[in-house]
Design a protein around this nucleic acid. Sequence first.
DNA 1: ACACGCTCCTGAACGC
DNA 2: TGCGTTCAGGAGCGTG
Length: 279
Amino acid sequence: MPELPEVETVTRGLTPVMEGYVVDHVVQRRPNLRFPFPDGFIDRMAGRKIDQLTRRAKYILGYLDDGQVLLIHLGMSGRMTIHNDPAIEVPEPGKHDHVDFVMQGGAVVRFNDPRRFGVITLIAANEVASHKMLADIGPEPLGNAFNSSVLAEGLARRGSPIKTALLDQKLVAGLGNIYVCEALFRSGIAPDRLAKDLKSGEIDRLYREIRLVLEDAIAAGGSSLKDHRQTNGELGYFQYNFRVYGREGEPCVSDGCDSTIDRIVQAGRSTFFCPTCQK
DNA sequence: ACACGCTCCTGAACGC
DNA sequence: TGCGTTCAGGAGCGTG
């Protein structure tokens, strides 16, 4: 499930074959993903150079040379594979290979998304800040605009559990179920605590652990949990080891703790935590 | 304004 | 073996 570290890893993987290159043409194999593809998508992409490829929250943004921006969200199960070896033929498209970006640099970038929660669309560069999909997104957790007092202000009047609050993209960008669980565990904060009840010291700790867990995961090349793959097309592999996520019933990894990881459901989503280490 | 639940979708895992 | 059920979840949207 791609969250910020995975999207960052994918963006970094795509940059060498997409940034600075012209899109020769796009192959689009179905009319929609989560939303319909934009009108004239094929024609609007053909011949456009991708000046810059960046990430905002869980979105990949490709700035084109004519003022359009290609916006890609991987949703739940979206993946990108790069076919860049002239000696190896590009595989026949599979059932869920919905889009190919055929680059003049020689790479074919293939978007695959079984569950089709992903999004591919085009917006104008001057509406990146105001577009409805991006306008209300909070600060980048690894950027200068995010700090302990910004987090404290965002949590101050929230009556929802801290777990739920951190999933809200308006509070801070890019966190999903996995890294919220991990950050709370690393902070020693119980997921059912109300956001507004956290003490200043706890918020400081949480702020630091959010950054650290994301940096760790990015450094590990992004996790490739279950159905997520690296952009190089290799089968997914685990480099970042989760401490609580998906570990229900397994022993807590903290030194001297003999508890087992528990799972509860909050706002319809699984929360994994250590009932002893997280208060 | 805020919080919550529903919804989209498919494949994997599970139960009988 | 095979069928049916449940679960996973990002985020827009509707509702209270």
